[in-house]
């Protein structure tokens, strides 16, 4: 579903090019669960952002569900992205002014889903994550694990084909982290959601079906299980 070919991203620093991503080629099939690992500054997050179309590469070809992303206009890219991709962050990034319910609902608003339909979908999601009782609370009133649960619920509400997670357990304790990873595995196995996660943790990486190690903007190793 996803194919990156010779993707690079660099910044001009003085007269030198500073490569964050250096000629990476990568294919991900539908139904895969990929873990990207690597030391700080190795380009993990940038790679994830490029895949998520939040960032643009300076060179290379990017194909997603048979569309040439590098040729699309901003608006088309945005439409594509809205339809297929969900994002989960390390810092949850819930909107503080919105309740749990409203946070989960927001992506649907941006996709112009009708009010009654939205209601049903959000209710469904709350039910599935067993957070119905918390729907009127604000993020500040939740624990970290609960917040991340809401973050994932929000990422999944629009039924994306691809879930991108940037260190989803980084701010959680091990028990909470484990729960989240179990949830990811279930989503991948039962719902067929393709997942790409960036992680520092060996243990979490092993939930995936493939582990890619990055170093200095290059793929150092890649192994499938």
């Amino acid at each position: 579903m996803l194919s990156l070919q010779h993707i690079s991203k660099h910044y001009q620093v003085g007269g030198n090019k500073n490569f964050v991503i250096n000629d990476i080629s990568l294919d991900v099939d539908e139904g895969e669960f990929v873990s990207i690992m690597g030391p700080s500054g190795s380009g993990k997050s940038t790679l994830l952002n490029i895949i998520g179309m939040l960032d643009e590469p300076t060179d290379g070809y990017h194909y997603f569900v048979n569309e040439a992303v590098h040729q699309l206009k901003e608006r088309q890219r945005s439409a594509l992205y809205k339809q297929y991709i969900g994002f989960v962050f390390q810092a949850y990034h819930l909107i503080d002014e919105l309740t749990v319910y409203e946070n989960i609902e927001t992506p649907l608003i941006y996709q112009d889903v009708k009010g009654s339909e939205r209601k049903a979908m959000v209710a469904d999601m709350l039910d599935r994550f067993q957070i119905v009782g918390k729907k009127d609370l604000f993020p500040a009133q939740l624990s970290g694990g609960q917040q991340q649960l809401v973050g994932i619920a929000r990422a999944l509400i629009a039924k994306p084909k691809l879930l991108l997670a940037d260190e989803p357990t980084g701010n959680l304790n091990s028990k909470q982290g484990e729960e989240i990873m179990e949830l990811f595995r279930k989503l991948n196995k039962e719902d067929g959601v393709t997942i790409i996660q960036v992680t520092h943790s060996e243990k979490n990486a092993e939930y995936g079906t493939r582990i890619i190690n990055l170093l200095d903007g290059r793929v150092e190793s890649s192994k499938k299980f």
């Binding site: 998520g52 939040l54 608006r75 992205y81 809205k82 994002f87 927001t106 941006y110 996709q111």
Partner: peptide, 16 residues
């Protein structure tokens, strides 16, 4: 700013 960032990630366009 972070709210703007999150909203954009959630699919908000600039005009919205």
């Amino acid at each position: 700013s972070s709210e703007v960032g999150v909203r954009k990630v959630l699919g908000a366009e600039k005009s919205t």
